[in-house]
Design a binder for these strands. Structure first.
Length: 437
DNA sequence: CCCACCTCTAAGTGTAAGTC
DNA sequence: GACTTACACTTAGAGGTGGG
């Protein structure tokens, strides 16, 4: 309730403000009322509630405030869930409803904080493994390479500068509460052909098991137990080298193959990143994955005259069943729904247009341009992309999306495994010039 | 055409419930 | 009572669908 003061007048203002902001943002038609669920018809105001895909007629009213109150009343009767009701934007939330909303936001903040901490733990576990490995004699001949992105393979162990190695899955766990001697590793099954390395954060303990031999979903290790003794890693270098020699158990995997060991959804993302990296390399730029999941951006684009580093948010889209390309401009998340990007969160948004696994084109939008068009910094939006060959049918819509073409490069003349044609290189350089701060 | 809501698959943490 | 396991909760991105 901070800043609201709790007075009815302030709550009223909040309601009006919320609904008018929402109206302005989400309604493409001319709004006929500043309240949700209310529209003017002739000299009177009509209220309707859309709930669970059913439109509920409320009635006609002489004033829009009356209609707005009637909308709220109907919504409360249809929807008993306070949070869902608030997401549907009541015009005049009660004091209690506003405080519930505040609680939800606090929960959300805590959840996001936890998520960020978890990402740091993943990174910490890799650093621990790396540090212990570097202290072993095997580090003179072998190396552990981090597999970035959403792959189910976290790292691979290979002979230095070779093309393939054995896949490693890292799991981390912290001891909690009074059970400081118990470590519970979740989601440990389904890693056939990989070595599962379990790391106790905050302690100097490490265990390893052959992925194919783990049958349970969660593996619990109690210090001093049989399992602890059986799986405990005393010397990570020796353990990894021994596994490296067992080719029949741990087949070798290249870094590229490892990156594509992920869900179909993440394959789209990974494929786009690999292709974009090749394209930018063609004009002397490097597109490098941000290390670890804790980073606020997907990658960094480095290059140009001053070796500038731009923070990049990457998106990819295949042609959808509706015959169009679209990207989601939000972070997913939890009980309060999707969260929009902030203009300050990244410098450039790279959107890859994919067709049958080939990169047909790319958009590179500066964050300020997206903000100018109301696509970041306000509410979660989906951006329909219009490359030159997929322009909108109607002239008015074409005009509305014309700005996108300024930030587009057509890549259809590039086959993917050859050097970039000169026309594409010059287009990319022009685009990079626009992205300069 | 835009928006809201939904699904899918991936992950880690904490804890309730089951087993020995 | 100690140990083990499953589950509910949270996060992520891409994409499908129906209403307005």
């Amino acid at each position: 309730m901070q800043g609201l003061g709790g007075s009815v007048a302030q709550l009223w203002r909040l309601g009006v403000l919320q609904s008018s902001i929402l109206k302005g943002l989400c309604c493409k038609h001319q709004a006929t009322s500043r309240f949700n669920g209310v529209c003017r018809e002739g000299t009177r105001f009509r209220a309707d509630v859309m709930f669970q895909r059913i439109q509920h007629y409320v009635g006609f009213f002489d004033s829009e405030i009356e209609a707005a109150h009637a909308f709220d009343q109907k919504l409360r009767s249809l929807c008993p869930d306070d949070v869902v009701r608030l997401q549907k934007s009541l015009n005049f939330p009660t004091k209690r409803e506003v405080s519930l909303f505040a609680c939800q936001q606090e929960r959300r903040e805590r959840a996001l904080q936890k998520s960020s901490e978890r990402a740091s733990k993943e990174e910490e576990s890799f650093c621990l493994l790396q540090a212990r490995f570097m202290a072993s004699p095997q580090a003179l001949t072998h190396e552990i390479v981090r597999v970035s992105g959403s792959s189910r393979v976290d790292a691979i162990l290979q002979i230095q500068n070779s093309a393939a190695g054995i896949p490693l899955q890292l799991k981390s766990a912290s001891a909690s509460g009074t059970r400081q001697h118990v470590f519970s590793f979740a989601h440990v099954c389904g890693y056939d052909g990989m070595l599962v390395v379990m790391i106790a954060l905050g302690h100097d303990h490490m265990w390893a098991a052959e992925g194919a031999c783990i049958r349970q979903k969660t593996l619990c290790i109690t210090l001093g137990s049989d399992r602890d003794r059986r799986l405990r890693v005393r010397n990570i270098g020796t353990t990894l080298e021994k596994c490296f020699r067992q080719r029949e158990v741990y087949p070798l995997l290249s870094l590229r193959e490892a990156k594509f060991r992920c869900s179909q959804t993440n394959k789209v993302e990974e494929q786009a990143h690999s292709l974009l990296a090749v394209v930018f390399a063609g004009i002397g730029f490097r597109l490098e994955r941000a290390v670890g999941h804790a980073s606020a951006v997907d990658s960094f684009l480095i290059g140009g005259s001053c070796e500038l580093e731009r923070r990049v948010q990457e998106k990819a889209s295949n042609l959808s069943k509706r015959n169009r390309y679209a990207i989601n401009l939000w972070r997913n998340g939890g009980t309060c729904g999707p969260r929009p990007y902030r203009e300050s969160e990244f410098d450039v948004l790279l959107a890859a247009i994919l067709d049958d696994g080939c990169l047909s084109g790319l958009f590179a939008f500066p964050s300020q341009v997206l903000a100018k068009h109301g696509l970041v910094g306000c509410k979660p939006k989906r951006l329909v992309l219009h490359p030159t060959w997929a322009m909108a049918g109607q002239e008015a819509t074409r005009r509305r999306h014309a700005w996108q073409l300024e930030y587009f490069v057509d890549l259809r003349s590039w086959s993917g495994d050859t050097t970039l044609p000169t026309s594409i290189c010059s287009g990319l350089r022009r685009l990079m010039h626009k992205l300069a701060p």
